[in-house]
Design a protein around this nucleic acid. Sequence first.
RNA 1: GCCCGGAUGGUGGAAUGGUAGACACGCAGGACUUAAAAUCCUGUGACCAUUACGGUUGUGCGGGUUCAAGUCCCGCUCCGGGUACCA
Length: 884
Amino acid sequence: MDYNFHEIEKKWQKYWEDNNTFKTPEDLTNPRKCYILDMFPYPSGAGLHVGHPEGYTATDIFSRYKRMKGFNVLHPMGWDAFGLPAEQYAIQTGTHPSITTRNNCDTFRRQIKELGLSYDWEKEINTTDPKYFKWTQWIFIRLYNTWFDDKLQKGRPISELIIPNGIKKKEKVKYINSRRLAYYDNASVWWCPHCCTVCANEEVLNDGSHEKCGNRVEKRNLKQWMLRIPLYAERLLKGIDKLDWPEGIKDMQRNWIGRSTGAEVDFRIEGLNINLTVFTTRPDTLFGATYMVIAPEHPLIGSITTDEYKNSVNNYIKATSLKSDLDRTDLAKEKTGVFTGRYAINPVNRKQIPIWVADYVLTGYGTGAIMAVPAHDTRDFEFAQKFNLPIVCIQDPDVADPDQKKRILEGNECWTEDGKYINSSDKTTGIDINGLNKAAGVAQITRWLESKNLGTSKVNYKIRDWLFSRQRYWGEPFPVIHWEDGEVTVMNDDDLPLELPELENYLPGESGESPLSNSDEWLNITDKTGRKGRRETNTMPQWAGSCWYYLRFIDPKNDKLIFDKEKEKYWMPVDLYIGGAEHAVLHLLYSRFWHKVLFDLGIVSTDEPYQRLFNQGMILAFAYETESGSRVSGELVDEREGKYFQKETGAELKQIVAKMSKSLKNVVNPDDVTSKYGADSLRLYEMFMGPLDVTKPWDEKGVKGVFGFLGRAFRFLSNPENVFVGEEDAEILKGLHQTIKKVGWDIENLHFNTAISAMMIFLNLSTKKGKITTDTACTFTQILSPFAPHIAEELWQILGNNKTLAYEPWPDFNEEYLKEDSFNYPVSFNGKMRFNIELPVSLTKEEIIKIVLADERSQKWIGAAIPSNIIVVPNRIVNIVIKG
RNA sequence: GCCCGGAUGGUGGAAUGGUAGACACGCAGGACUUAAAAUCCUGUGACCAUUACGGUUGUGCGGGUUCAAGUCCCGCUCCGGGUACCA
């Protein structure tokens, strides 16, 4: 019988749909549950690309396998459908984004269904659906009404916030607002003039361009919604350790949070009654602090600067404010700065040190001021050299090179590693750390500072408040009203959702107002007392919907609650979460943050949302370049003897591997692959290409390979002449059970490429033998089914079964069949393999040595010499060591 | 600069410290066919032999540990990802 994949795939997709085969079990008593989640896609107008099915197939195989293992499986799909493209399209054509979104979702759903993925479509969600974003708004209200109790390291309802005595009524609101997890305030934010919206720091690329559109961004001062994610820094950091995530991703999150320990130290300012507080990770180097630097935006800059230096400092501030952040942070640029005319007192030795202003000190980190230790900090060293500030070495460096040592001791080279302190004592203050090493020095100085009330140990984090508003139309509206008397209120839960108004004009205002401000009717509101208010016109960023979608999947149609508590308790946490590494930090960190808040409020039962995470690698594609660098589409290329030529001109081309993109003319459309080879082949190829987590190039020739395998499998197993009832051949039986064992183990570890290879080996064995039993055929079909479900269902039916194999128990392997009575020993001499010898496994080491040495082939390698050592590793290797 | 990851045939890739190159692609030869496609069979790291059931060499480079290293350790090179004046 021919392998007619078109017919087979259509037939079984219809069967699964008609029978609701993959409906999530309602019964919550089965203790074996598995929540398997994909990072849901943004449904773009372009439809699916071959990168999508990679992760989806992986989770699908895992889901099908777990169902066969007897687990209750939750495996849903949905749409992260808010976002700019639909809005841009609305601006151009007037089509409402909801229409564009619906069409795109329809395309995605159709394409996904054609891949035979076993989602429970009753659980489908869409972030743009008011029934969904009602709850996104509901969570925002929770964030707004939560404060973080630092002592308990826990978020608590704002009603439990203790207001310090003596706070006046007006100050009280301010105080409360200063503690909310969500707050509204002026912020210096990145503004993209092209998109007319702000963007988060994370959305600005290294070169200062907007990630979404590629245009240059600029700073603006605007009123924005922010989330106090840094309050959860410690929790987010500690939580990482327990997670079964790739170490690389964990490190990225740790780096992003950026915890550093050190001390805050107060410096008295000469001639003023104020202190300048700095943060340092190296309080031990206080004796080497020869000057101080404050950021140009430092609040004390006005008071510190002396009259004489006002002009130059003001000019400097003006100059830096004109610089973009990009210019300021460009390391290649020379450091700049000016003297303020003022001096501070170094607390350890009472020495006067000058205070400078320089933009290499950032206002947003630490206290926005530093003590500069040029001898032991490369940035300070650079600055001191340029401005001829003193460089005092206070550590005898641990280096062997005497020349280098001399340079360091003389202050001509910077030393940031460990060493023994010198010049680090003072009689008047009574402190002395000379001779100590770094760890001891840090501890002693910190203790001394704390005892003298001059400083405290302190932990700082790089992570900043999360800019949470966008000047867009197509996003979740904030359930917030700004009243004419200045009060800000959030809506009642009962009044949610706050839906988006219909608009004629989707263009954002250049002033930083979202298109929502165009709708007067929606915008203006009056309360019972006649007080006028205006709705918040910003909308939430795209992250909002994806921050918690995994929770809604549990109970997507619940219109009373965000989800049923019992269901949440049963299904959470997500057992396997697969998606691209591009979300390593942002989505996963934001999502963890929200989850922890919900956990603190008792809304969810787990502290972390995603127990096991895996990142699939990107799929690249070959592209062809002419000598001049222009790109040639793959169809216009001839391959001859491993070289590539342009069909038209005959010119030789260079083959490169690159991201799929329109400009490279190397995009592969999954629909084309499916129509040519079928969904099972596409699935199998995506898994067979290589390990799931690495980037790998798409090669259509590889699809042919797995297509051939499926064809052979189908022709062999569907032919009654090959399948018989009776006793199975021992070799086949052994091969089958090896395959069961390997495939099961590989699926658990997401090693799909080697699982497929094992099945190929078994099929090759079977076809060589010519005949297998019906039992063997059925078992093989079962283990193939998670990978290539359509063909497996068809074969299952041909083999005489009458219902879906989706819930057939996964076959067990029998160790008995795997046992060998002999082993083909490789025999090596001095580690070099020379020949093989088949020996019974029951032999002792001595017996093995005897037989091997007696073998004539051994004589050739031993000759007249005497073996000095013979290593026998049972069932592995024999190694004979000969000296001389 | 710092943090991660990687480098294995013509290609994608296999290998709990134990026979490097499984499996697949490609290529070559053969069968079937009027022919092609499809399918099936055989061979295929390189080099040297080809009288062999032969030998040499080989996992980015240089050292080391070990009876034995693609795998472990030290020092590099190159490539990819993240991050960056974070005190």
